[in-house]
């Protein structure tokens, strides 16, 4: 299978704290990978290393067939990587229109805005408003428009449903499904395990900075996911 994104033997951390230890992960082109695990397992760190926000202490990062380990995040973005970060990936002091415009070349601004409004019609009524004044759900939708207007090949999504109402989450997951249907590879970090599993082709579970499980959603019963979260058992199989 052709990889869309691949991490090989990555270790990483912040100021003296090692968070990821020798993690390898592949997102095959055109597939959806769910990245699960308890808080503090290193999921966000892994996405940050993949997109170049954080440099890896060891290991390599590959986009398609290119080693991008040494590249800055804006170069990886130019190669078709889109990272929707944890929290709200927006610029609160800019308007909605400006937020969308920043994702594309100036000449593509109009196209980008119509694509974004197609994806989330509610944003169409908010274009002139400061992004910081949007509701939580609208902010998250705005952050997600990057994954549509930049036409990325690989999208990293970090807990994009956190703190949102169920209908909004429905809308967001429908959007993710449409991205996948359009051929993008997705790496999804998600608190709502059941929803993530429904979307995913493959699952990785991280625990304490290492990969505790790799496989397909069908291999996971509800019980074993919960066990991996709570750590009540260490007999989760490794390898698919």
């Amino acid at each position: 299978m052709k990889p869309g994104l691949e991490l090989r033997g990555v270790s990483a951390g912040y100021a003296g704290t090692t968070v990821l230890r020798d993690v390898s992960l592949t997102v095959p082109a055109g597939s959806v990978v769910a990245l699960l695990g308890p808080n503090g397992a290193g999921k966000t760190t892994l996405l940050n290393v993949a997109s170049g926000v954080l440099a890896a202490d060891a290991g390599t990062v590959w986009l398609a067939d290119a080693d991008v380990t040494a590249e800055a995040s804006y170069r990886r973005a130019a190669r078709g990587l889109c990272h929707v970060p944890e929290g709200r990936g927006i610029f609160p002091s800019l308007t909605v229109r400006q937020n969308i415009a920043l994702h594309v070349a100036p000449r593509d601004e109009q196209v980008a805005i119509s694509l974004a409004v197609d994806a989330f019609p509610v944003l169409g009524r908010r274009l002139g408003q400061l992004a910081g004044t949007l509701s939580g759900g609208e902010q998250q939708m705005l952050a997600l428009t990057a994954a549509r207007v930049r036409r990325p090949e690989v999208v990293l999504l970090d807990e994009v449903s956190t703190g949102l109402a169920p209908q909004v989450i429905d809308e967001i997951f429908a959007f993710l499904a449409s991205l996948a249907a359009a051929g993008a590879s997705l790496l999804v970090v998600e608190q709502y395990v059941a929803r993530a599993l429904a979307l995913a082709d493959y699952v990785y579970i991280l625990r304490n900075g290492g990969v505790a499980f790799v496989g397909e959603p069908a291999e996971l019963t509800d019980e074993s996911v919960f066990a991996a979260y709570l750590g009540t058992t260490t007999t989760v199989p490794v390898g698919a």
């Binding site: 610029f91 800019l94 920043l102 930049r150």
Partner: peptide, 25 residues
């Protein structure tokens, strides 16, 4: 301007500017 927007954006969140494909340097 686009660069001005990026400057404001850098103020809000420098990492996100890089993720958005604009060169913070």
């Amino acid at each position: 301007s686009r660069v001005g927007l990026s400057m404001q954006a850098v103020v809000d969140n420098p990492d996100l500017v890089g993720l958005g494909g604009n060169n913070p340097v």
